[in-house]
């Protein structure tokens, strides 16, 4: 399966676990792009190596997570300046296994139109299903996909929300398997909370997904923040696991997009522009036909 790994995907840092979670689990064996890997903690910090060859893989510690890569010299990790600003709370939500392509997980995260149907009473309501037109763009300077001017009425936008509000959204795909959502904060007028999703492809159609929150919230307990986000992600998970094919189609015609899918269209085009094949239907004839 690893021969399906394209250069762009191979060059990326990929999440292993959050710092505390790694310490709790280590030593453990898992996978990265179908390669079996071992993860342990040492005096000098976390270590990752391939179980088949014994080769040590690079390790990076950033944004509360431990990252590794199958390439010896991965591209620099994307920048999230809000992590260095202080004031917000960082809450990593732990790993959740999902039997689908990591790219499907990211695409679902970018989708606004599903809120009223998959997260009723929380992120949407069946009385207000309209997706207000927004802009999706591929930003060539940073080589990322962005969606801006997104807005949606949400009954309970965040754990700290006490009433329904109109929420402003910005989405950002920083890597094929990493996306960040900037969402107007119920706890601080004019400020944004960040919610991120990091997916590690264990295999082309099996992923371990790590969600995190970086938010202005002085009142909610860690437990209630965690369970708020976990409940939302588990609502998505059952949809994701039932979405066929599990590999993401990049060619036109397999799935019919609507105007509300502009971010998905930009994401798929960006992946295609970079020659991404891992986790896609490209070159898998039985899926594409």
């Amino acid at each position: 399966m690893t021969d399906r790994l394209d250069d762009f995907t191979k060059n990326q840092w990929v999440v292993i676990d959050d710092e505390d979670g790694l310490v709790r689990r280590a030593p453990f064996e898992t996978s990265l792009f179908s390669l079996p890997i071992g993860v342990e903690t040492g005096a000098d910090g976390p270590r990752v190596h391939r179980l088949d060859t014994g080769e040590a893989l690079p390790v990076l510690r950033r944004y509360g997570y431990v990252w590794s890569a199958v390439d010896v010299a991965p591209r620099p990790l994307f920048d999230i300046p809000e992590f260095d600003e202080g004031g917000r709370r960082f809450v990593p939500c732990g790993p959740v296994g999902v039997k689908t392509s990591a790219l499907r997980v990211i695409e679902n995260f970018l989708d606004i139109a599903h809120f009223p149907f998959v997260h009723p009473g929380v992120l949407g309501t069946e009385d207000e299903t309209e997706v207000i037109p927004y802009r999706a763009e591929i930003r060539r300077d940073v080589d990322e996909v962005w969606a801006v001017d997104c807005g949606f009425f949400q009954p309970k936008a965040m754990a700290a929300s006490s009433a329904g509000v109109h929420v402003d959204y910005r989405y950002r795909v920083a890597q094929p398997c990493s996306a960040v959502l900037y969402k107007s904060s119920p706890g601080r007028a004019g400020a944004f909370d960040l919610i991120g999703i990091l997916a590690r492809p264990l295999d082309e159609t099996v992923s371990e997904v790590h969600a995190w929150m970086l938010m202005w919230d002085d009142t909610s307990s860690d437990e209630s923040l965690l369970q708020f986000q976990q409940e939302i992600f588990l609502q998505d998970r059952i949809i994701l696991e039932n979405q066929i094919p599990h590999l993401l189609p990049l060619s036109a015609g397999m799935e019919i997009p609507t105007r509300a899918d502009a971010t998905s269209i930009a994401y798929r085009r960006w992946l295609k522009d970079h020659g991404v094949t891992w986790g896609t239907c490209d070159g898998v004839p039985e899926v594409a036909s």
Binding site: D20, G21, R24, G94, P95, S221, E223, S224, L226
Partner: peptide
């Protein structure tokens, strides 16, 4: 009363 069962194993 929420308990951090996952990921914290509280």
């Amino acid at each position: 009363r929420p308990v951090d069962m996952h990921p914290g194993r509280a």
